[in-house]
Design a protein around this nucleic acid. Structure first.
Lengths: 346, 346
DNA sequence: GTGGTTTCTGGAAACCTTTCCAATTTAATC
DNA sequence: GATTAAATTGGAAAGGTTTCCAGAAACCAC
């Protein structure tokens, strides 16, 4: 008995390129050329192949394409916590853009941990992602830097600056927004202004701190170093630090909260302390949260648009994939003064 | 000149399994066996291979593994809108669980559109995902059903019921929560209770509607059909419908809003109309949003825990991957009465 | 020391493409 | 119609792994 050729109907497997080639009576390479839009294809060949492919319902295997071509059409997306609505909007807009261009997005949470983050990046490298968009937990962790530099794909960092890495970045002018906010608080009469935010291991915090300090210097007011608490961006830290700060002998009269997590924690702390932000104390939130327009109208904010960040991230990574050099894109950050700034100034 | 064998140092490519085999002086298959934890391996072999792999820093190519083994260690995750914080929490918890088990999550937004959703599913099939977790836009769209049934991987549906599909599901007892809410509103004296939510093309809405109607029937009160508006889950629909309903000659005295998007839209509408929910009218929100504990304390809600949904989704899909049969998991949904229920009852 | 298991290892096929190169066909020119 | 160039096509290698199968080695009992 001669070994019979196995056809797709006998495999329960889907149709593959061989089946199409056989059906169309042409070579495998021709199928590939037609379907990948290669220019050197005659009209007759194109018609034959397309007909055969359609009849059989052929769809190329993505994994095999990836292995052979080296491109996975996949972009890694790493953030601290995708449930944070700010990151959620970034992720949404980013995915929409990437999808239009035929790319998919592999989402990972770093859980605020550099070890996890480094492990994630290593995994993504092994998965041969074409590009990475990340909002890192820290910029200087050696493991992280190692993982990033071993990743051969283009990288877009969101509000981060990693030295010695040839990456693109989306950079907000955080110092500006924070500066304007603090300047306004000072103008209103606040002196004991607290600042709770994530760690200075990331650019965004350093840039904000810069704006914070500049505003004080310009006003000729001493910087209240004891009121600056820079740890992590999560709600737990925001809560405990707010509790601590407002329990000081000489407590703050205003707080600048460094993100949605921090704000969330601060709000919870104030509930426990019986403090009403914007009334008993001055308050400026960095970043706005869902339903802010409803529940936060009275709150001053340092605003930036996550949709822009998401779309830009996608655009830059797509450009890098086309061979363009790494670039930095700047995003506006604006102080939106509202009544809460003047809280606590009886 | 004899063709020299190309080694990894001459390629700029990373080390592959051949290099390790050569270094260890064993066959390729042995490398694979050792590294994939195959039992039939001698201690001596294991030691040799592990040493060689470590020396060369070898890491297996994920794409090649996927092609050969047929498993991509990738789970698709499709929701209407990942920026919705409810889905955000689900996604976060789900990814964390999947990651522990060595799986990654490919996130796609369906943008509330069945065509997009069907296209997404088709793409994921071509990408050979091992499983799919999805909160579908509709259950009956033919293209969608076709795309789902052609997908050979296990599926977990979140609050959806697709007939003729052998899928698992996470099912909330929405009728219960909504029933209790509406019963309470009726008890308080509300009669003109409006219900704005997504379409009845999905189970979750039908289940809610059931609870809504049951409560009326039990109370012997006629169901206010003109106040039931079931369209989409997004804020735009919530806003326009709220505007329309509260502009009726005989407007509602209370609203039950079917999710964070709807609530968001309703809130915006009320702002325009000068209506304060919980005061001028009764209000129950389905699902709670970020900072709800701060800004929403006065609002009654129909609560369910997205973290549980996320974790369960991951668990079920992982069990399916181990060969277990599709199963349904039920999630509690609880009415949390607060002051807003009694709004508008002067 | 033989026969028979059992355990381990090597070789090669298979997974499904893309892409290179050579060969063939077609078109163009004189 | 011959020659050359251009367009198109087929064949086969390559991408990096897993897995099947057969063969080798080790072990055991008699």
């Amino acid at each position: 008995m001669t070994p019979k050729k196995i056809t797709s109907s006998e495999r329960q497997q889907p149709v593959n390129i061989h089946d199409v080639a056989e059906r169309a009576g042409v070579a495998i390479s021709s199928i590939s050329r037609v379907l990948s839009g290669h220019p050197d294809v005659s009209d007759r060949m194109r018609a034959k192949v397309e007909a055969a492919a359609a009849e059989l319902g052929y769809e190329p295997d993505f994994t095999a394409q990836s292995l052979r071509s080296g491109a996975t059409k996949t972009i890694g997306f790493i953030v601290r916590d995708i449930s944070n609505p700010f990151f959620g909007v970034i992720a949404q807009k980013c995915e929409q853009e990437l999808r239009k261009a035929g790319y998919s997005m592999l989402v990972m949470n770093s859980d605020g941990d550099t070890e996890t983050e480094a492990a994630n990046i290593k995994l993504l490298r092994r998965r041969k992602i074409d590009g990475l968009i990340a909002s890192l937990v820290a910029e200087d962790a050696p493991k992280l830097k190692a993982a990033l530099s071993e990743l051969k794909a283009p990288v877009v960092l969101i509000d981060r600056e990693v030295k010695g890495l040839n990456a693109s970045a989306i950079i907000g002018n955080h110092h500006q927004g924070v500066h304007d906010a603090v300047a306004d608080l000072l103008r209103l009469g606040h002196r004991r202004i607290a600042f709770v935010s994530g760690s200075t291991r990331v650019f965004i915090t350093r840039d904000r701190l810069q704006g914070f300090e500049d505003a004080f210097k310009e006003a000729g007011v001493e910087i209240p170093s004891d009121l600056i608490s820079l740890g992590t961006f999560d709600a737990e830290f925001g809560e405990s630090e707010t509790l601590r700060l407002f329990d000081l002998k000489n407590p703050p009269t205003a707080l600048l909260a460094g993100g949605i997590g921090t704000t969330s924690g601060a709000m919870r702390a104030w509930q426990q302390l019986g403090i009403t932000p914007g009334k008993d104390i001055g308050f400026v939130a960095i970043d706005e949260w869902p339903l802010f327009d409803v529940f936060g109208q009275q709150f001053s904010s340092v605003y930036r648009d996550p949709a822009v960040i998401g779309r830009s991230s996608a655009e830059i990574i797509l450009q890098s994939l086309k061979g363009e050099k790494p670039q930095n894109v700047f995003v506006e950050t604006t102080y939106m003064p509202r009544e809460s700034s003047a809280g606590g100034l009886a």
